[in-house]
Simulated scan of single mutants.
Amino acid sequence: MRLDILNHGYSPGTKLLFAVIRLFSGHPLPDAAKLVFYRPDFYGTRAKEFTHEAMRGPSAWSIGDRELMAAYVSKVNESAFCIGAHTATARQAYQDEPRVAAVLADLESASVEEPLRATLRMLGKLTREGTISAQAMREVVAAGVSPQQVKDALAVCAAFNTTNRLADTFGFKLLTPEAYAAGAKYLLKRGYR
């Protein structure tokens, strides 16, 4: 059930910003963006900062890798809006649609580097089970992932487990492929701020 709160409660200045974005992009503002503008003092400002740091801050993981992590966590959570948004963004970041599709279809048979595969496997387990063992972490490190890369991947996982739940709770509207592509272009250019 879609909650109507995302359609109301914005200041006139914010409504004007939404109209300008729609005018220049040719697409309505996605619900994910609307959510961070609703009560920014309570959620939006902090969420944008945390997610931007996880997705665009310094990391040995590429932007494509982190977008793929976001898409993978979203797939495990079955969050349709976020799967669409971050699959489109990973595709554009990598410039490799078949690679992204292969990982999301079957991680174990996809042609992907072992450190990334081990990390995605760990993020999937953590997302499904809500816990991860020290042994599972040792396996990720043994696959060639640095402790800092593990922390960076966990930040992506935290950001998107939160976002996925909000997307599903608020009933984010699914976008057209063109709108997801436009959103991906924006995320790659500007990040999550």
Score class of each variant (00 low, 15 high):
residue 50 F to K: 11
residue 154 L to P: 00
residue 73 V to R: 10
residue 58 P to S: 15
residue 134 A to M: 08
residue 112 V to I: 03
residue 60 A to R: 13
residue 109 S to D: 08
residue 18 F to E: 03
residue 49 E to C: 00
residue 91 R to S: 08
residue 30 P to I: 15
residue 58 P to K: 14
residue 31 D to K: 12
residue 108 E to I: 04
residue 86 H to S: 08
residue 5 I to C: 08
residue 26 G to S: 13
residue 123 L to E: 01
residue 127 T to V: 14
residue 37 F to Q: 09
residue 159 A to E: 08
residue 170 F to Q: 06
residue 157 C to F: 02
residue 189 K to W: 05
residue 185 K to C: 02
residue 18 F to A: 02
residue 50 F to C: 05
residue 46 R to C: 03
residue 20 V to N: 00
residue 150 V to E: 02
residue 60 A to K: 13
residue 97 E to V: 15
residue 75 K to L: 15
residue 161 N to L: 11
residue 180 Y to R: 08
residue 2 R to I: 14
residue 6 L to F: 14
residue 14 T to Q: 01
residue 126 L to P: 02
residue 129 E to A: 01
residue 14 T to C: 04
residue 97 E to A: 15
residue 36 V to D: 08
residue 130 G to V: 01
residue 127 T to D: 07
residue 10 Y to W: 03
residue 34 K to L: 05
residue 5 I to Q: 09
residue 41 D to N: 10
residue 6 L to W: 15
residue 50 F to N: 08
residue 56 R to T: 11
residue 101 A to Q: 15
residue 70 A to N: 11
residue 143 A to T: 09
residue 171 G to T: 11
residue 10 Y to H: 00
residue 163 T to F: 14
residue 71 A to R: 08
residue 30 P to E: 11
residue 181 A to W: 06
residue 11 S to P: 02
residue 45 T to N: 09
residue 64 G to F: 04
residue 28 P to H: 10
residue 114 E to G: 01
